[in-house]
Amino acid sequence: MGYRFVDGVAIADVSFQADGETLEELFESCGKALTNSMVTRLESIDAEKEIKLEIESDNTEKLLYEFLDDLIFYKDAELMLFRKYEIKIDGNKLTATLGGEKINPQKHELIIDVKAVSWHMFRVEKKEKWEAFVILDV
């Protein structure tokens, strides 16, 4: 499982490709990619505080979109960045416990704020592994 940033898609924004053996792993990869577009080193984030998420959606694509939208929400509303992901997906329902800490510019080398997840070219697919392509508005 992992992710890589992709160049040359939306030049003012950030796009990434992510994968995982399971859907849970894919969601974790996407969460890490989103966070890594804001902070240079994920290792600099400590899992000091837990947040629980419950999301129910119409389909897998929308579930991933809403999961990432919630991570962006917590970044603004609670100033939280996440490092640890315990995710369970059952059909179109996700429950997760996320571990992270408040943004600290002295400790976290920050890059750019993520404003939103774009639907442009947004994709979740099961090939050999689960794969996703995501553009973030920054």
Partner: peptide
């Protein structure tokens, strides 16, 4: 320049 949906 390119954005998505509308260009910028």
């Amino acid at each position: 320049h390119s954005g998505y949906g509308f260009p910028i």
